[in-house]
């Protein structure tokens, strides 16, 4: 069997320079879209059995266990993150365990491009394309938010205070990358709400 050729959405992009933040593509993440009724105890129990964690019920939150994370997308939808190699089997395991319980687990590892943004000015950079209140307490580590970014739909996950993962649908990956190149330039760096050296 010949080797399979695999390339991520932004495989053709190099790490950019002269940006005010670090920007790179995360290529090795697996993702499973999981639908189910949160109030259905059997559903929640089956999910826990496979994933090892309780699916989060609080909107815009996330839960981790080992190398698996569950991101809340909606009242009946979660995005399960795991190592890429594990995704297909995880989706299959969920489907098998859930059986006749009304649910849907789909391997969507290829559907989105994952961009990692890191650095002090990450929130300000994102604010050039998003009207979320990213400086507020709603965006502490663990927060998840689907959003409108630039002109497209996106998903934001606050990994750490200055580390954000931005998920965009695969076909928009180049557009999102170029938008970040344009808005994260070192020359356009801006600090919001800090001491200013104003004219006196």
């Amino acid at each position: 069997m010949p080797d399979l050729y695999v390339e991520s959405p932004l495989a053709h992009r190099n790490s950019p320079e002269r940006l005010s933040i670090y920007l790179r593509e995360i290529k090795d993440r697996g993702m499973v879209d999981l639908r189910g009724i949160a109030s259905d105890k059997k559903f929640m129990a089956a999910a826990k059995k496979v994933l090892g964690l309780d699916l989060p019920k609080t909107p815009h939150s996330s839960v981790s266990w080992g190398d698996v994370k569950a991101l809340w997308l909606s009242i009946d939808q979660w995005l399960i993150l795991c190592p890429r190699a594990k995704a297909a089997e995880l989706a299959a395991a969920l489907t098998a365990e859930l059986g006749v319980i009304h649910s849907l687990a789909v391997d969507v590892s290829d559907m989105r491009a994952v961009l990692r943004l890191e650095g002090e000015g990450v929130r300000e950079v994102l604010l050039k394309g998003s009207s979320l209140d990213l400086l507020s307490g709603d965006y502490k580590p663990g927060a998840v938010r689907r959003m409108h970014y630039a002109e497209i739909a996106a998903l934001l996950h606050v990994v750490e205070d200055t580390v954000f993962d931005l998920y965009v649908f695969r076909s928009y990956a180049d557009y999102a990358w170029e938008f970040l190149l344009a808005t994260a330039r070192e020359a356009s760096k801006i600090k919001l709400f800090g001491k200013q050296a104003g004219p006196f």
Binding site: P59, H60, I75, S131, D133, R145, M147
Partner: peptide, 11 residues
Amino acid sequence: PVCGAEGDETD
């Protein structure tokens, strides 16, 4: 009112 999200009408 479902998820508590607040946003511009374009969201």
